[in-house]
Design a protein around this nucleic acid. Sequence first.
DNA 1: ACGTTATAGTTTCAGTTGAAACCATTTGCA
DNA 2: TGCAAATGGTTTCAACTGAAACTATAACGT
Lengths: 146, 146
Amino acid sequence: MLELDRFLPYRLSVLTNTISAAIASQYAERFDLSVTEWRVLAILGRYPGISANEVAERAAMDKVAVSRAVASLIKSARLKRAIDKHDRRRSMLSLSVKGQKVYDQVAPLAKRHEERLLSHLTREECIWLDRIIDKLSLIEAQHLAD
Amino acid sequence: MLELDRFLPYRLSVLTNTISAAIASQYAERFDLSVTEWRVLAILGRYPGISANEVAERAAMDKVAVSRAVASLIKSARLKRAIDKHDRRRSMLSLSVKGQKVYDQVAPLAKRHEERLLSHLTREECIWLDRIIDKLSLIEAQHLAD
DNA sequence: ACGTTATAGTTTCAGTTGAAACCATTTGCA
DNA sequence: TGCAAATGGTTTCAACTGAAACTATAACGT
């Protein structure tokens, strides 16, 4: 008998979706930004000048999703694209001034949400959580590799 | 500056998606079962006779998704629908013999995956994880309420 | 130099999804 | 009783998604 309410993958899934939805609701309509777009923006805020492929790797997103998010962000002038001189297939992406402004507003929102969540945990719980997520991520990555 | 790699909601999201995908890959084509369908099946394996709405509540899914999963499961004869005598809008759902057989095969697969994950954690880590997930879920649920 | 293979990124196509509108039935209440 | 509001569930429509095919460029081996 499988007790779904106590089934770890299921509980994680519900929790994660709730958290993501809560954060997304704070920026989605306000900044006309989808979750995918926000992730691309966040990655490029941190690592300006990387290619679409590198964004996909860093964000654990597939390259089609990145391609579309990038297209949309360029269309709305929140991203700039430069062509790599040495490899003309490759584009070098970075935030425009407008994109930077959006990033500067959304990042604190996201951070505040995280802080709110963590503020309800004890110092000890935070440390364990951090460690356990890393451990599980590693396990899954290894499992995936074979 | 938002460090996405250390951002809790993001790490949770990546981890959860990896785990879900790994489990789903074990039953998806083999049993021709989507994640949504499997969830409905699992809920009804545990709570036979409940309505579509109750399934949606228990599984934290939206009612459209449940409606479609139920329709598909009935079409493939893995679910039975009976009309409630006292409220003819309401249907009482339960697994057919065929559905029960699928459940009996998939549930152990899912369990084994969970065990495999947990087997890499220490006893102490398991206990903390369990407690922290419950705590965070509660916090989000309360946050959602206002 | 030339053809084959690999890589960056985009487009197409065929589902999948969720919000809103909808239908049928029941409940609440004047 | 009868009518408005609520509820269980389905359908519609428009947006989103991923896999596979495609374009353009670069790298590799001969």
